[in-house]
Simulated assay, not measured.
Amino acid sequence: MIFRMNRGSPARRPVVAALAALPLLLAAPSVSAAPPGADVRLLGEAIVPHLLDYRGTTVGGLSGIDRDPCTGEYVMISDDRSYHQPARFYTAAIRVDENGVGPVDFTGTAPFRQPDGSTYPAPTDNDGNAVDPEEIRVDPRTCQYWWAQEGNRPKTPSAPDPVIQPSILKTDGTGQHLGEHRLPPNYEITADERGPRRNLVLEAITFDPTGSVLTSALEGPLIQDGPLPTTEDGALARVTAQTRSGEVLGQYAYPIEPVFTAPPPGGRRPDTGIPAILAHPDDPDRFLVLERTYVEGTGFKVRLFDATTTGATDVQRVDSLADRPVQPMRKRLLADFHDLGLSTVDNIEGMTWGPRLTGGERTLVLVGDDNFHPQLTTQIIALALPGEN
């Protein structure tokens, strides 16, 4: 199936190169960042029709994307918690070049399987087997899939819904279960109100180019690490590098931006955090980090940062970041998506490296999660970054 494209302007747009504002105690100059004057430009975007039917499934909720080095195609995960159809992923051929992005041609879909071979059920008040799929990556060594699901922290300790721990699972191209990756101990949801917050758990994972290191980022701060971001202050989320077998190589504090604007009086709390992280192909300590915020009455703010763990404190044995000053990861703003000329800036949640352009620029391919909502769109976006970036 092929979908329409919106071309980006060929004109280059200046990148914003300002450092994120941090509390004085945590402030640090940016290093390993994009050179001053570097450009990020929009190549184009493709819009997938809302609630598209593909092989008996409803395409939507696409919250993660990765490029398969074995096929050149892309794999995308749906965050459908088995409400529409069983939790699943899609594969697609997507053209990305100097002329833009698209067509998007879906080539396959399969449900994720539990260890016993069954699909995942929709959540119920007492079903601990439900999942919340959020991210998918292709193993550079085997081209099998590793996917992350957030689990569930009940709204209150007495709520009927069960605790479901976050996890990173492994599957083959047909969805068959191949195993589970061991997570750091402080990613565990506990009964004593420690660990990840509800719906701010595990949305971001990435492999280094060799497949030796898997890095994950929590979407928001652990409960013991301090309050959520406000319009005045940011927050610290944990980023963890592990071996394939689960050994923690290092854990670092990533500074999430303050909320860009306040909701209307009586409005719901803004949703803000890290939906995606992407390892740099040439520097093992460097990452692209996507920050996404939704504020009721205003809409979405999406920003792309270049971040490094170089010089950051290893916090894997620091119980609470709220109780101890640490040196966080340093970062530099690469792009505010409102400055790129997109048709709309919605709920962008996934990103992966695409092919290099003939002029040497790298391409970045992103996907937007429409949450199966008619006022949001499923976008496939392609950006060009300087070749040295």
Rank of each mutant, 00 (worst) to 15 (best):
Q165Y: 07
F337K: 02
A217H: 03
T215W: 02
A237F: 06
R317C: 05
K170T: 08
L52E: 06
L214Q: 01
N129K: 13
L342G: 00
T352C: 14
P29G: 06
H373G: 07
L228P: 05
L62C: 05
V201P: 01
G37K: 03
V295M: 00
S343Q: 13
P23V: 04
M1N: 11
S9E: 13
D346H: 09
E135N: 12
T119H: 08
I380N: 01
L200W: 00
A46C: 12
D208Y: 04
M1C: 09
E349C: 02
G350W: 01
G354L: 02
L366M: 15
E180C: 07
I348D: 00
G61T: 07
R41K: 09
Q251S: 15
V213H: 09
H84N: 15
L25C: 09
Q327P: 03
N389Q: 11
L228K: 10
P355G: 13
S245A: 15
L62P: 02
T358D: 15
L51K: 08
R269M: 12
N371R: 09
V75P: 02
L321F: 00
V315L: 02
D283C: 05
V15E: 15
G311P: 05
P103K: 04
T91N: 07
R67L: 15
P140C: 10
D125K: 12
R238W: 00
R194F: 08
I164Q: 07
S320W: 00
P111W: 10
T309A: 03
Q242E: 15
R88T: 04
T313F: 11
R362S: 14
E232L: 09
A34V: 06
P386G: 14
D79P: 08
K155I: 08
E291H: 10
H373P: 04
L288W: 12
S118C: 03
S32C: 12
D323E: 15
A18Y: 09
P29C: 08
L288K: 03
G220C: 02
P263I: 04
V365N: 04
T272Q: 10
A33L: 02
R362L: 15
D233R: 14
Q176C: 08
E98D: 15
A312R: 00
T344Q: 13
A382C: 03
R153S: 06
A92K: 01
F3P: 01
P328N: 11
A237L: 08
P196N: 10
A312Q: 01
D225N: 13
V213A: 09
D39Y: 10
Q165V: 10
D192L: 11
L340Y: 05
E45T: 10
V163L: 12
T107E: 08
E388N: 12
T119W: 03
Y120L: 01
R4H: 09
P227E: 05
G56R: 05
I189A: 04
D172K: 07
I274Q: 00
V16K: 08
T174L: 07
T119S: 09
I2E: 14
I205N: 00
D339M: 06
L43T: 07
A276W: 03
V239H: 01
P35Y: 05
Q242G: 03
Q144V: 07
T171K: 02
V295I: 04
P111L: 05
N99A: 14
D225R: 04
E388V: 13
E188H: 10
L228T: 11
L304W: 11
D336F: 14
I256F: 02
T240Q: 05
R137T: 04
A262M: 11
M1S: 13
T240S: 15
T344A: 14
G220I: 00
A307S: 07
P123Y: 11
P325F: 02
P328H: 09
